[in-house]
Amino acid sequence: MGKFSKKKGGGTPAISTASLPDIVFMLLFFFMVATVMRESGEKKVMVRLPSADQVKKIEKKGLVAYVYVGKPIPKYQAKYGKAPRIQLNDAFASVEEVGPFVLKFKESKREEEKPLILTSIKADGDVGMGIITDIKEELRKVNALKVNYSSKKGTVLDNFKK
């Protein structure tokens, strides 16, 4: 039946790729916006945050001083050992340096923002409480009393899964 026969030489038409850049750009913008360039360039400690369900979101990211605690990454283990260490900005630090670090951070902010400064402790779930307690004592000494124990959203039972 000639009526329904296809036209001669009609292969599948090529799909137009003209809108491909647009799609890619859309994705690109999404990731550009979602990307958080971490304040500290390099992570020198391994941090696996604990899970908790009574968490609050940090609203003002600019007013948060981060303190990382965890085992040094394998590259640094030869030099610094496997014991948990503190990382401030991008260098290893001792407990005594936490106070001055937070004070310096506070100094860099405007006067009305100073009371809102928050210290976020990003510690690995497996580190001992000793080091955390020392950090808390340091923070108390410099009157930086607002602390955030950074955790993932989840249930506490996730902490005990292998």
Binding site: A52, K56, I58, K61, L139, K146, N148, Y149
Partner: peptide, 8 residues
């Protein structure tokens, strides 16, 4: 950026 808030 979630965490447990605490005042020392």
């Amino acid at each position: 950026n979630y965490g447990i808030r605490r005042k020392l």
